[in-house]
Amino acid sequence: MSAQAAARLRGKDLVGIDPLSAGEIQLLLDTAEQMRDIAARPIKKVPALRGKTVVNLFFEASTRTRFSFEVAEKRLSADSLNFAATASSVSKGETLIDTALNLEAMQPDFIVLRHQYAGAPHQLARILKSSVINAGDGAHEHPTQALLDALTIRLKRGTLEGLVVAIVGDLQHSRVVRSNILLLSRMGAKVRVAGPPSLIPPGMGEMGCEVYGRMEDAIAGADVVMMLRIQLERQGRMNFPTVREYYDFFALTPERLKLARKDCLVMHPGPMNRGVEIDSRVADGPQSVILEQVTNGVAVRMAVLYLLAGGHGEPTAD
């Protein structure tokens, strides 16, 4: 199944990978690849989004994702505004919807939203005229992360089709794994997920992957191993006992990495817990593409902004 790139994105928003066709994903990746070149130019800026306003509405702290979006916005000459809210609930006085409507009164073209509750981007997309870009909503999706992961793999391997990708970690709470399962399976890759059984949500296999309770089974012969951050801050000790035990059974160590293919790529969405889910020797080793993921993140976010700026709807006949 090789995707024919679409001519445009159908929706005005990017709320997740779930609504995207393989063709739209292909278009995003192709465009992102072109955007990479801008970073190599003497002037790392193009006027494509000149005069457009982007509001980075981050309800969850995230320096790196927000920074990546800011760089992307500025490279396209857009005006970038940051609104760091700390909580959205009524107890703080203003609801999510009121915050967004107030912002919309200033007519931003885009709102990049990161929120701790799933479904927040969908709510905003319904009521706002601005294009809403999901930068992470609770445990639901993180579409630009999956796109940059896919771009990284594609640049290294030439294609996504037929590759075996293993994703390991706290599956229950991870939006990264959900977006990745959807994207990779839609583009013809074979996805295997693994994590402690007490952190595997029911029915995850139905999203398009094989589910394993033991890490070794998932990474055997894999082309790519993606390690998820163990959500220590959200971890009730009822789901998993200790960091030490996690390392013993679910960390990517040099020994475990040998189970995968010789040239297997090592990936991580960051920030890493060195010595918890990933050994430093692996994170800094020759197979690691973790830093390239970050570079590609800017390119992917530029592609998303560029394509959404172009209007939406079914492509007109040329």
Partner: peptide
């Protein structure tokens, strides 16, 4: 409800 839908939507079930 906890099931394949809650997993896909990222909501606690």
């Amino acid at each position: 409800h906890e099931g394949a839908v809650s997993t896909r939507l990222g909501l606690r079930g």
